[in-house]
Amino acid sequence: MTINKQPTFVKTAAEAPLTIAVTAINEQGEQVDKHIACERPLTVYLNWRPIVTLMTLGARPEALALGYLKNQGFISDANQLESVIVDWEVSSAAVITKETTEDLEAKLSEKTVTTGCGQGTVFGGFMDGIEDIQLPKPQLKQSMLYSLLNNISAYNETYKNAGAVHGCGLCEGDQIISFVEDVGRHNAVDTLAGEMWLKQESGDNKLFYTTGRLTSEMVIKVAKMGIPVLLSRSGATQMGLELAQKLGITMIARAKGRHFLVYHGSDNIEFDAPPPKRAQTN
């Protein structure tokens, strides 16, 4: 649901090629034509101050830069944006805002190395405001989750073509509203967060899907988006689960085919389509 008029500002649309054709030698000693995922650096600037260099696929770099800065607590008001300019010739994304950035140095000085793909970092403003997050109580059906997982199989195009990437999807019911792939799962979630933020969309009726594991950082980012359900084909960490419990996020992991594990929020799910139980062997 759109709750406000979208902000107006200067923005490029600098999508880069997602894969590149290469040759490889298979186990038979034969040459085969394949595609591999692209990976390129993108240095994010805020009011001409370099903040971070992200290694990215380059699918939607403007949204990635904005989502990263928003999730890290560097910016908060989309209506104060003046421009977002991505230039792949110099591998940069320059974000200009009218918001005050007087506390930027203090936030940059406080950082934590995370369990993100590769080596991730969060800064001092990342945890700001999570105590005030109030998420709605979702109502889900097991049959809807199965339908969503089936629909998601039509996505992951870069992964199917080249591998080596993660995918994230913004969903309503069993429909995928937006899907993005990147070399790191946090780039993908930041991209979707940036798009939601610009569109001023509410997360109340949405579900977030990721191919990556459910760590504390992933849970916090989804909570900041206002989304009450987090679904992954991968596993969860102890801190991720503790935060999901604290923030009221329904956490569903190891979701593939007709299998899933609800680590928190099972009372929000109607188990209306249980698959046949596997026969136990002695």
Rank of each mutant, 00 (worst) to 15 (best):
N156S: 13
N156R: 15
T158S: 04
T158K: 10
Y159N: 14
K160D: 07
K160M: 11
N161S: 14
A162P: 12
G163H: 12
H166G: 01
G167K: 03
G167M: 03
G167C: 04
G167H: 07
C168G: 00
C168L: 04
G169Q: 05
L170N: 01
L170W: 13
C171M: 03
C171R: 00
E172G: 04
G173Q: 02
D174G: 02
D174A: 13
Q175C: 01
I176F: 03
I176P: 01
I176Q: 09
S178D: 14
F179R: 06
V180A: 05
V180E: 10
V180I: 12
E181R: 01
D182N: 12
D182G: 05
D182K: 08
V183C: 13
R185F: 10
R185C: 06
R185A: 12
H186L: 14
H186C: 11
N187T: 10
A188S: 14
V189Y: 10
V189S: 12
V189E: 09
V189P: 00
D190Y: 12
D190W: 10
T191E: 03
T191F: 08
T191C: 06
L192Y: 10
L192E: 00
G194Y: 02
E195T: 07
M196I: 02
M196Y: 06
M196D: 05
W197I: 08
L198Y: 07
L198E: 05
K199T: 08
K199G: 07
Q200M: 14
E201P: 04
E201T: 07
S202A: 08
D204R: 12
